[in-house]
Simulated assay, not measured.
Amino acid sequence: MSISVIIPCYRAAATLRRAVDSALTGAPADLEVLLVDDGSPDDTGALCDELAAADPRVRALHRANGGAGAARNTGLDAAHGDWVLFLDADDALLPGLWAALDALTTDADMILFGLTRESSGAVKPTDYLPAGFCPDLQALGSALSPLLFDTGLLAAPYPKLFRRAAIGAVRFDARLAINEDVLFNIQFLQNTSAIYCLDGVYYKQYDTEAGSLSRRLRGDLLDAERVTRPALADLLRQNGIDPAPYEAASRLRACLNQYGLLTGCKGTLSYAERRALFAEILADPAARKALRERLRNDPNRLLAVPYRIGVACNWPGLLAGYTMAKQNLL
Rank of each mutant, 00 (worst) to 15 (best):
V36F: 09
V36S: 13
V36G: 12
G39E: 07
S40E: 13
P41R: 11
P41G: 09
P41I: 11
G45K: 12
A46Y: 02
L47Q: 11
L47K: 07
L47W: 08
D49P: 00
D49I: 02
E50P: 01
L51V: 13
A52I: 13
A52E: 12
A52G: 14
A52K: 12
A52W: 12
A52C: 13
A53W: 01
A54L: 06
A54F: 02
D55T: 08
P56N: 12
P56R: 15
R57S: 08
R57W: 04
V58N: 02
R59F: 01
R59E: 10
A60Q: 04
L61T: 05
L61E: 07
H62I: 03
H62S: 14
H62K: 12
H62A: 14
R63N: 00
R63F: 00
R63V: 08
A64C: 00
A64E: 14
N65S: 13
N65D: 00
N65R: 15
N65K: 13
G66L: 08
G67M: 07
G69E: 06
G69Q: 07
A70P: 01
A71L: 08
N73Y: 09
N73R: 13
T74L: 04
T74N: 01
T74W: 01
G75A: 06
G75S: 04
L76S: 06
D77K: 01
A78K: 05
A78L: 05
A79Q: 04
A79W: 02
A79I: 04
H80C: 04
H80E: 14
H80L: 10
H80A: 15
G81A: 02
G81R: 02
D82C: 04
V84S: 06
L85Y: 02
L85Q: 09
F86S: 12
F86K: 01
L87D: 04
L87N: 07
L87M: 11
D88E: 15
A89G: 09
D90K: 11
D90L: 07
